[in-house]
Computed example of a mutant assay.
Amino acid sequence: MLVLMIIGVILVLVVMTYAVITANKYSLKKYQYKPFNIKTCLFMLIPSFTFLSQFMFLQNNTATFLLAFEQGNLNIILLTTTSLLLVLGFVYYLTKKTNIWIAIFTTIVQFAIAFLIAVIIILRLMGRNKKQIILK
């Protein structure tokens, strides 16, 4: 089962890489703009971090975001709104440069990649803090 999962992950990575390269080539040919570049990838880290930072404000008895919204947790509402506005602004920016379908595809892929990068960074920092606490 583990082998199938590893093969599946590798297959998804290959397909996503091919899709990104194809979208960049098409966009460069038609609109003279590459939507997948380092500037846009770095920008998508901002909404990913704002989305992930909501977990700091969840209390132990608050299991879901919906419950936090019902309780009126202002921090979570502000972070969610900020994250959504940044993503919508990114879609609008890319729509001006390309078309709506390329903008949506680019946003979904880059948000997923940025989300994974943000999770890895946060987990590494948490692991580093845990080692420092143990050593003290």
Results as ranks from 00 to 15, higher is better:
residue 116 L to I: 12
residue 12 V to G: 03
residue 111 F to C: 04
residue 19 A to S: 10
residue 19 A to K: 10
residue 45 L to I: 12
residue 53 S to Q: 03
residue 73 N to D: 07
residue 56 M to D: 04
residue 9 V to E: 04
residue 32 Q to S: 04
residue 34 K to Q: 14
residue 109 V to P: 05
residue 30 K to M: 02
residue 63 A to G: 09
residue 41 C to I: 13
residue 39 K to E: 08
residue 15 V to K: 06
residue 28 L to F: 13
residue 106 T to E: 03
residue 77 I to F: 14
residue 106 T to V: 14
residue 60 N to K: 05
residue 81 T to G: 10
residue 48 S to V: 07
residue 118 A to P: 01
residue 108 I to M: 12
residue 10 I to Q: 00
residue 58 L to S: 01
residue 17 T to P: 01
residue 12 V to E: 04
residue 105 F to A: 09
residue 98 T to S: 01
residue 16 M to V: 15
residue 104 I to P: 06
residue 18 Y to F: 13
residue 26 Y to H: 11
residue 87 V to Q: 03
residue 88 L to C: 12
residue 59 Q to C: 01
residue 117 I to H: 02
residue 30 K to N: 03
residue 75 N to K: 12
residue 122 I to S: 06
residue 102 I to W: 02
residue 21 I to T: 09
residue 103 A to F: 04
residue 55 F to W: 11
residue 122 I to M: 11
residue 48 S to D: 10
residue 40 T to H: 08
residue 101 W to S: 10
residue 109 V to D: 07
residue 27 S to N: 04
residue 72 G to S: 08
residue 99 N to L: 09
residue 54 Q to I: 02
residue 112 A to M: 10
residue 61 N to Y: 15
residue 109 V to G: 03
residue 67 L to T: 07
residue 17 T to N: 14
residue 62 T to V: 09
residue 50 T to E: 01
residue 121 I to P: 05
residue 97 K to C: 04
residue 89 G to F: 09
residue 48 S to L: 11
residue 26 Y to R: 11
residue 54 Q to L: 05
residue 57 F to W: 01
residue 67 L to D: 07
residue 116 L to V: 15
residue 15 V to G: 06
residue 64 T to G: 03
residue 96 K to Q: 14
residue 60 N to F: 15
residue 41 C to A: 13
residue 102 I to M: 07
residue 83 S to I: 15
residue 97 K to G: 03
residue 76 I to M: 04
residue 79 L to F: 10
residue 11 L to M: 14
residue 13 L to S: 09
residue 85 L to C: 15
residue 106 T to L: 06
residue 47 P to A: 12
residue 81 T to D: 08
residue 17 T to S: 12
residue 25 K to N: 15
residue 45 L to N: 05
residue 93 Y to L: 08
residue 43 F to G: 00
residue 72 G to R: 06
residue 60 N to E: 14
residue 115 F to L: 11
residue 48 S to G: 15
residue 75 N to Q: 15
residue 103 A to I: 05
residue 19 A to I: 06
residue 97 K to T: 00
residue 62 T to I: 06
residue 23 A to T: 15
residue 44 M to Q: 09
residue 15 V to P: 02
residue 63 A to D: 12
residue 18 Y to T: 14
residue 68 A to I: 09
residue 93 Y to I: 11
residue 47 P to R: 04
residue 104 I to W: 09
residue 119 V to T: 09
residue 73 N to I: 07
residue 46 I to T: 11
residue 81 T to L: 15
residue 110 Q to L: 10
residue 121 I to S: 01
